[in-house]
């Protein structure tokens, strides 16, 4: 009896605490949506309004006029898509090589890769990477946005671990049936790794979509910039400091990843924990 009363009390307290925390954590997003739908008079009224009076969609049109958002979204899609595809391609093949083959220099190259596991390439390498891109003449191109990030130690590790967990008997059986190593990969291993590939794909995509420092330094032309830089362009371009317009543009930029995340939350969480990815 006493125990159950206490449990009820604990549950109630936890419930209240969680509601408060959820409100505080989701407040920035909620208020951003609210202000993006307010007319300038509402935006500048003091104290700030929590709910908009009506739905003032003109802010969204203004945001698209202020900054070439359509083009920036396209650039970000190309960049994130290409990086995701590249990382999966190199990650699967190299993971397969480290898991299933013996070759010269395996340990040395594996250790070299291992050393870069936690290295945020986008930031630590930025100076040498920029100089290389300049030499290649790739500044202001999709090449510079995508090629340097098409391989990562994290993906290689992830797929190596996964392939190591698949019983060796399968490989032997496939070999006896006359399958080449590549056929074994595409017909046996990959179908067994669908959830893994899906999880890695969304995490890689969100990572690339959210990149900031590298696009900031390697792209100077407005029409080659990405959406994350677009957010800063909005703040700079909105001379009247109308946060309704800035937030409208911001919502447009954050909506794709947030919706993807809400729809695939379980897959996200599982893959994140399994891979220990930086995100």
């Amino acid at each position: 009896m006493r125990k159950s009363t206490r449990k009820l009390l604990n549950t109630t307290l936890a419930e209240i605490a969680l509601i408060a925390i959820t409100l505080v954590v989701s407040m920035p997003l909620f208020l951003a949506i609210s202000i993006s739908l307010q007319s300038p008079e509402e935006v500048f009224s003091y104290p700030p309004k929590i709910f908009p009076k009506g739905l003032y969609f003109k802010n969204y049109l203004d945001a698209f006029k202020l900054v070439p958002l359509t083009r920036l979204i396209l650039n970000s899609l190309i960049m994130a898509g290409a990086i995701t595809a590249g990382k999966l391609f190199t990650g699967i093949l190299s993971g397969y090589a480290y898991a299933n083959f013996r070759f010269r220099g395996k340990n040395v190259s594996f250790f070299a890769l291992f050393a870069t596991l936690f290295l945020p390439a986008e930031t630590v390498m930025i100076v040498p990477l920029f100089l290389i891109m300049k030499k290649f003449g790739w500044v202001n191109t999709y090449w510079a946005l995508t090629i340097p990030f098409m391989a990562s130690a994290t993906n290689t590790f992830l797929f190596r671990q996964h392939f190591l967990s698949i019983p060796k008997e399968l490989e032997d059986a496939a070999r006896i049936d006359g399958a080449t190593p590549l056929q074994y990969l595409t017909r046996v291993l990959l179908p067994l790794s669908k959830a893994m590939i899906g999880g890695a794909a969304i995490i890689n995509f969100v990572y690339a979509w959210n990149m900031y420092l590298w696009p900031l330094v390697v792209i100077m032309q407005d029409e080659m910039k990405t959406v994350q830089i677009g957010v800063k362009m909005l703040i700079d371009a909105e001379s009247a400091n109308n946060w309704g317009v800035i937030m409208a543009g911001t919502i447009v930029v954050l909506i794709p990843t947030v919706i993807m995340f809400l729809l695939l939350q379980n897959l996200f969480v599982k893959s994140l924990v399994r891979s220990g990815m930086k995100g």
Binding site: V25, Y212, T257, F261
Partner: peptide, 20 residues
């Protein structure tokens, strides 16, 4: 709802808090 900021980029987190 609590997990959502994971999917939001640092740049946007900065913008949201600049506004708030």
């Amino acid at each position: 709802l609590i997990f959502i900021p994971y999917a939001i980029s640092p740049a946007i987190a900065g913008t949201l808090w600049s506004f708030l």
